[in-house]
């Protein structure tokens, strides 16, 4: 049996183990349930808006008015994915942390890591097997989520998604996997690095709270447009040009706020996903070339972080001699 087959054996076991783990299944259920509810509600709302428009057209036609000259309203079905992206940011990251912790902690606690490491398989291959198995699980979960929400938007929302819109969903799916792998790798790394497994879990969640909740929350609080529910500018019925002119006067403040938000990897993922899906108004209807030129930095940040934490975990797993509970 070659080395690849051994890596595959480890990966297959990781995948199967997670699917039997109750903690993982509970968080998976919550994630799918919340995303399901959010997307179905949004899709019905979307369908309702389309129906209102079509009824209005029908009534105008019935009253003998010419409707062909009226400009068509714009609907943005990809914006329905906002809730799903936010749940992936929050609960998806928890799911990834749980996976990373279980991958190492159970083996450490059971002393099975010692058994595995005395088999003729290199430490790197063991790590790679564990990484691949869990990465495959993250891909599967994200795949189910994105296929599911695409179908709901398509069927419940009664909107025919274009090839370009499907491609944007696909890009978001890819960067969701990369984003979730960051949290998986952080949790794995800490479980390898720290003697105390509860501490590894606690620190993973502290990082999660920082990236997912605290930094974005501070950023939102500092946003001048966020001081009134629904947006300050919207409530004042201010046109975009005036908004931009006002914000220009606060450019230093805005830059500081932006820099703070950029320290959160979650915010990078959100900005990229919201740009792809046109959830952020600035990018709605814009070409992918434009989005990439503006938001490539977010893609680079999360890709780099994912790679760095993954590689760092591999190095520690290979180099750290005592990976198990010391007697």
């Amino acid at each position: 049996m070659n080395n690849f087959a051994k890596i595959f054996t480890v990966a297959k076991k990781e995948y199967a183990d997670a699917l039997k783990n109750r903690v993982f299944l509970v968080f998976l259920f919550f994630l799918l349930f919340l995303i399901g509810v959010s997307i179905i509600v949004a899709a019905f709302d979307f369908q309702g808006k389309v129906a209102v428009y079509q009824n209005a057209l029908l009534k105008l036609r019935q009253s003998g008015q010419v409707v062909e000259n009226l400009s068509e309203p714009q609907f943005f079905p990809l914006q329905l994915l906002r809730g799903a992206i936010e749940y992936l940011e929050i609960i998806g990251a928890i799911l990834a942390i749980v996976l990373g912790y279980l991958s190492i902690a159970k083996e450490k606690g059971n002393n099975t890591l010692q058994l595995i490491l005395t088999r003729p398989i290199s430490r790197f291959s063991v790590y790679l097997g564990k990484f691949l198995g869990n990465a495959l699980l993250i891909i599967s979960v994200s795949g189910i989520v994105f296929v599911g929400i695409t179908l709901v938007v398509d069927i419940v929302g009664k909107t025919m998604l274009t090839g370009s819109q499907l491609y944007r969903i696909f890009l978001t799916f890819i960067f969701t996997i990369i984003y979730l792998l960051i949290f998986f790798s952080i949790s794995t790394l800490l479980s390898i690095l720290l003697k105390s497994l509860p501490n590894a879990l606690i620190i993973s969640f502290v990082i999660w709270i920082l990236f997912v909740l605290i930094i974005p929350q501070i950023g939102d609080t500092m946003d001048p447009d966020n001081q009134v529910p629904g947006g300050l500018f919207n409530s004042l019925h201010m046109v975009k040009a005036d908004q931009t002119a006002i914000l220009a006067k606060f450019s230093h403040y805005e830059k500081m706020r932006d820099n703070l938000e950029q320290t959160s990897l979650t915010k990078h993922y959100e900005r990229l996903a919201f740009a792809f899906l046109g959830i952020k108004d600035t990018y709605n209807g814009k070409s992918l070339e434009f989005i990439f030129s503006e938001r490539a930095i977010d893609g680079w940040w999360i890709s780099l972080a994912s790679l760095l934490f993954g590689v760092f975990g591999a190095v520690i797993f290979v180099k750290k001699r005592v990976l198990w509970k010391e007697e």
């Binding site: 059971n110 002393n111 010692q114």
Partner: peptide
Amino acid sequence: KKSIGYLPENVKF
């Protein structure tokens, strides 16, 4: 590793 078998203390599997 190919030449040895090992049973550590308190292994739970």
